[in-house]
Nucleic acid binder design. Structure first.
Length: 254
DNA sequence: AATCGCGTCAACCGCATTACA
DNA sequence: GTGTAATGCGGTTGACGCGAT
């Protein structure tokens, strides 16, 4: 006779959550708050582990979660921050209210994977390589043989191309389309930040300033008052091919 | 109509970190 | 200071839906 024991060997239920389970979990959190996940089973009768309960709450039941597709602005923020932070999904999620780390992780995986998978496609590689000069190829190969640490891997290259695509498609998002440069930009950010803090007015309406401003706004994510109007004016009169703000501050591609 | 491939997303797993006795 | 439990995080898996063939 098999005796179920408490803990990881207890035999917690796995798989999809039912509506009834969601209801029990919601009632528990409403009553006790987001803590003591390991006590959920005891108080509610749910046969779910604390981890499972927490995950369900955080990723699905928690109030204020946004459902549906990510906006272009959110996409931009994700790519921007990923270039700096890497796979720090929970950190990235903090910049996207209503989005979960799991959601962002899934998004990145499904969208970036497309490009990554192309590394198995030699035709594409040859095609892309044909765009660069013969000298560049020679130099790259020389670097590879001389110094592996300073050489861009194929993954890096794919990633970079992806950023270039994003920059071309969503130019308003990317102050720079090169991850290495982005890192440098991040390191110089305090100066940029200081400039805008001390600036009594909106930045000049050159593309560079506009990009730099958006870059700054990403870090100061509480969008300042008047920002939307400013962007709308910019996009309307100065940068007609850039994005504009729609309802609720959500930027829309023109 | 069947099935195959692909994209999406919820959920699980293992490890790291933190809190606490 | 140490051991254990709880929590958080990132990687991975598997189910499902949908369009293409």
């Amino acid at each position: 006779m098999v005796i179920m024991i408490m803990g990881s060997e207890r035999g917690w239920k796995k798989g999809s959550w039912t509506h009834e389970e969601d209801k029990l979990l919601t009632e528990y959190v409403t009553l006790h708050g987001e803590c003591r996940w390991s006590s959920v089973a005891k108080f509610t009768g749910l046969n779910r582990s604390g981890k499972s309960c927490r995950l369900r709450w955080v990723n699905y039941l928690r109030p204020g979660l946004k459902k549906g597709q990510l906006t272009p602005m959110e996409e931009g923020i994700i790519f921007e921050l990923h270039a700096i932070l890497g796979n720090k999904w929970s950190t990235i999620a903090r910049y996207l209210p209503g989005r979960t780390d799991n959601e962002i992780k899934n998004y990145w995986r499904t969208h970036f994977k497309k490009k990554e998978d192309s590394k198995h496609n030699n035709k594409k590689l040859k095609k892309r390589r044909s765009k660069v000069t013969k000298e560049q190829v020679v130099m790259e190969d020389t670097n590879k043989s001389n110094n592996n640490e300073n050489t861009k891997s194929y993954d890096d290259e794919t990633k970079e191309n992806y950023y270039n695509d994003q920059h071309n498609n969503m130019g308003f998002i990317y102050p720079n389309n090169n991850p290495t440069m982005l890192l440098e930009q991040q390191q110089s950010f305090p100066l940029m930040h200081q400039d805008y803090l001390s600036s009594p007015s909106w930045p000049d309406t050159t593309t560079a300033d506009y990009d730099a401003f958006l870059w700054f706004s990403l870090w100061d994510f509480d969008v300042p008052q008047g920002f939307e109007e400013h962007v709308n004016n910019l996009t309307k009169y100065v940068l007609p091919n850039q994005a504009t703000f729609g309802d609720g501050g959500t930027p829309m591609q023109k």
